[in-house]
Simulated scan of single mutants.
Amino acid sequence: MSLTASLIPPAVRRRLEARDARVRADGVRHGIELMRARRDRQRYRYVFVVTYGRSGSTLVQGLLNALPRVLVRGENDLYLLHLYRALAAVRAFRERHGEHGSRNVTSAFYGLKAIRRSAFMQAMNDIVTTSVIGNLDPADFDVLGFKEVVWHRIEPEETAAFFDTMDKAFPGVRYVLNTRDPGQALGSGFWQKADADEARALIARVVEIQDHLRTTRPDRVLDVAYEVITGDDTAARDRSLRGLGEFVTGAPVDDALLARLQTVLDVGYGPFPFARAESDAEEPVEA
């Protein structure tokens, strides 16, 4: 006890020590609450663009980023699929060996049953959230996501389980199903080095996945057709733009926001915007 503390009457000292303990405890509780809030899987809403190469997905990405409080990043090689497969592998391993003394410290599988699926869900959400936000202010956004063109890598037999996992990792997740006539998409530089039959099969696989999402989550998908948003029918185009904005933000698109979305259509997105020839492209960017 310090000399100063020894001069304080015992009753007063006990009250001060009790108050100090309460302050410390409150601080710890507050810190825990902040940590939980930062990792709450429902803190943000999530939207992912499901499509194939040269479908106009980079343009759709631009439209999404023109919406208020929405941040949608570009392609990332669908790293979520690797995380899902890690979870699927450990669950299968646990089913095979979980009863082999996994609660016994002498077992080769000690602790196997302690691996929780929820930890994988949280990790998937944390990785997407932090990588999408990057060095931006998290308070500036309500909706996060990315667009991707390699959804064909999801095998048919794992499709349902993969998207069920997505539902748990990203509660209420929504999908923008970006489409374009496959014949037009196949004629672009993205596919020209690929075998024609293989390219058609990959696009067909994405179409299968889009159909799966339409069937299983009809209230959480929206179709956006490249031909409509870039076509000459302005009424159809504007209906599609308004529908996209309301689907993602949950609020009607007023005339000012519609005008903002319309200006996005005047910007070149992707490797060869406005149907430029490959030789005219200056800065190839994956579309």
Rank of each mutant, 00 (worst) to 15 (best):
R174A: 08
T179K: 09
V207C: 05
G243M: 07
F163L: 07
W191K: 00
Q210M: 07
A204K: 09
E208K: 10
E208I: 08
A199C: 03
T179P: 00
Q192G: 03
G250A: 11
W191E: 01
D211S: 13
K193S: 14
G243S: 03
E198A: 12
M166E: 03
G231F: 06
T179L: 11
I209K: 02
D211E: 14
L222K: 13
T215H: 14
M166K: 01
V221W: 05
R242D: 05
R200Y: 10
S188H: 08
K193T: 10
R214S: 12
V221S: 07
F247C: 07
Q184R: 14
D232R: 14
R180M: 00
D223W: 02
F247R: 01
R205W: 04
R217W: 02
E208A: 08
R180P: 00
L222M: 14
W191V: 02
L202C: 06
A236K: 13
D233R: 02
F163R: 01
A235P: 01
S188T: 12
M166V: 12
Q192L: 08
Y175W: 15
D167A: 13
T215V: 10
A201S: 15
A169Q: 04
G189R: 11
K168M: 14
G231T: 04
F162S: 01
D195R: 10
A204G: 15
F170P: 00
D223A: 11
L213A: 03
L213M: 03
Y226E: 00
A204R: 12
I209R: 01
F190L: 05
D232T: 15
N178R: 09
K193V: 08
P218R: 13
D181G: 06
E246Q: 15
D233Q: 04
D219H: 14
D232K: 10
H212C: 08
D233P: 00
G172M: 07
P171R: 01
E208G: 05
T165N: 05
D181M: 08
R205Q: 08
G231Y: 09
A225R: 15
A204H: 09
I209N: 00
D238E: 15
R242Y: 09
A236N: 12
A236G: 06
W191Q: 01
Q210W: 05
A194E: 07
W191F: 00
W191C: 03
T216N: 13
D223L: 11
D197G: 08
G245T: 03
T165Y: 00
D219K: 13
G245Q: 02
G183M: 13
R180N: 00
R217G: 05
K193M: 09
N178V: 06
F170G: 00
A204L: 07
H212Y: 15
F162C: 11
T249H: 06
F163M: 06
Q184C: 05
F247S: 06
H212S: 08
T165A: 14
D211T: 09
S240H: 07
R217K: 15
D233C: 04
G172L: 04
I229F: 05
